[in-house]
């Protein structure tokens, strides 16, 4: 089958496979900035509407009182080849949107959790989530101006993540820095897979 512009190098072929990596962390830690630093497109924004039911039903009209919440997600794209497209999704900053996290985590290769040393607890929810879901992740410590200098190991100790989980200092605005984090993540995912395949079967 023919597609009008299938000869454009950037257009994925019919055999294309899409993969995703999540960029998570608390409110305002630099998720969108990090997505934008490596994306080949300006980060796109998509919205999902959550209708919260269960509030009072109006007896006269029978109409349920519903509140609609809109969750915005931004994402970027890296075309690896005509066969492989990688999407980077920034997770919603507020952890009350768990329903969105579920769909996001489904089938994700792995995640980058951004930690801001000025308010480390803001990334705890993301770390807990990925640990529970066994989604491989690395921690990027975003060095905002004016934040005290920390060593990656100090942050690791404060976050209490597994020894095995890479923790790296980063700057979400810099392409090179994000590239390095993504490289670290991919290497980590591959190491986790090798480890898992060597582990003895059983509970």
């Amino acid at each position: 089958m023919e597609f009008a512009s299938s000869d454009r190098p950037e257009s994925p072929g019919i055999e294309a496979m899409a993969l995703k990596i999540l960029i998570a962390g608390g409110f305002g830690v630099g998720k969108t900035t990090m997505v934008g630093s490596v994306s080949e497109i300006e980060p796109l924004r998509t919205e999902e509407q959550l209708t919260e039911r269960g509030a009072a039903v109006d007896d006269v009209t029978g109409v349920e009182q519903k509140t609609t919440t809109t969750v915005a997600l931004d994402f970027g794209r890296i075309t690896i080849s005509r066969e492989l497209i990688l999407y980077l999704f920034g997770t919603p900053g507020q952890d009350r949107f768990w329903f969105m996290w579920d769909e996001l985590a489904q089938g994700a290769l792995g995640a980058i959790v951004i930690a801001d040393t000025r308010r480390l607890p803001s990334c705890f929810a993301a770390i807990d989530f990925f640990e529970q879901r066994q989604v491989p992740f690395v921690v990027g410590v975003n060095c905002f101006d004016g934040s005290q200098d920390y060593e990656a190991d100090e942050v690791r100790a404060a976050l209490d993540v597994d020894q095995f989980v890479p923790v790296r200092l980063c700057d979400a605005r810099k392409r090179q820095s994000t590239k390095e984090l993504l490289t670290t993540l991919l290497e980590h995912i591959m190491a986790v897979n090798v480890h898992a395949s060597k582990a003895p079967a059983g509970p």
């Binding site: 993969l19 492989l84 290769l109 392409r175 991919l186 995912i189 591959m190 897979n193």
Partner: peptide, 14 residues
């Protein structure tokens, strides 16, 4: 592993 390697190579080339 093959797919992951391709993604890794692709990111390194960015």
């Amino acid at each position: 592993p093959d797919t992951l390697q391709k993604v890794l190579d692709g990111i390194r080339k960015l």
